[in-house]
């Protein structure tokens, strides 16, 4: 059983790789389309900026490779946002697996909102197989300035001024806004459930 971690110009691939190592999972970091297609699972990590990341993926036609994958795919943070339709971050058209928009957090009138949201926030309304061993209201580690709006594919909700999608699922595509690889035991059991799909 082999997991491919997508290598691109945005991403903390090393952290994801170490998280899989801790679970004893075999993983490779790759941008080779054939390796991605033949992997049992694909993880699409991300820390970075949307437009430069999308350009990098398009230049290598990896956007289409990702979209066509049939095995379980897990998008993390920017990886989740890039799987959506469009991001307000530099007005970027994304891959479009999820028909949802990515928006920027805005301070409510008269209130100073710290952006990015950095830290541990609780997730609710969990209903996806990857949350099988994650309790309701579990705390996960988030670092982001942009968020995915709520929609029919939302499988977990978080709140930072407004309610937004903490997780999505559609067919074989799973995505989380938080960093399970950095979310202690709760994050680890989510990754474990994903690897068992």
């Amino acid at each position: 059983m082999k997991t491919a971690i997508l290598k691109y110009n945005a991403g903390n691939t090393q952290s994801v790789l170490f998280a899989l190592e801790r679970l004893g999972a075999e993983a490779v970091v790759t941008d080779d389309p054939e390796t991605l297609r033949s992997a049992d699972k694909v993880i699409f990590p991300g820390v970075g900026e949307a437009s430069t990341a999308m350009k990098y993926l398009r230049d290598r036609k990896l956007d289409q490779v990702l979209k066509d994958l049939q095995q379980p795919v897990l998008g993390i943070c920017l990886g989740m946002q890039l799987l959506c339709r469009h991001s307000e971050e530099n007005d970027t058209d994304c891959i479009g697996v999820f028909d949802l928009n990515v928006k920027k957090f805005e301070s409510p009138a008269g209130n100073l909102l710290k952006i990015p949201q950095i830290g541990w926030n609780n997730i609710t309304g969990l209903h996806s197989v990857i949350f099988e061993h994650v309790p309701q209201n579990a705390y996960m580690y988030f670092v982001h300035s942009y968020f995915v709006e709520l929609g029919p594919d939302t499988t977990a909700i978080a709140n930072y001024v407004i309610n937004y999608s903490a997780a999505l699922q559609k067919d074989n595509f799973y995505a989380v806004q938080f960093h399970p690889e950095k979310s202690a035991d709760a994050g680890q059991s989510l990754i474990e459930s994903f690897l068992k799909l």
């Binding site: 090393q14 580690y141 979310s183």
Partner: peptide
């Protein structure tokens, strides 16, 4: 550290 620690 990164290998052994699952928090930021």
């Amino acid at each position: 550290i990164a290998r052994h620690i699952n928090i930021p």
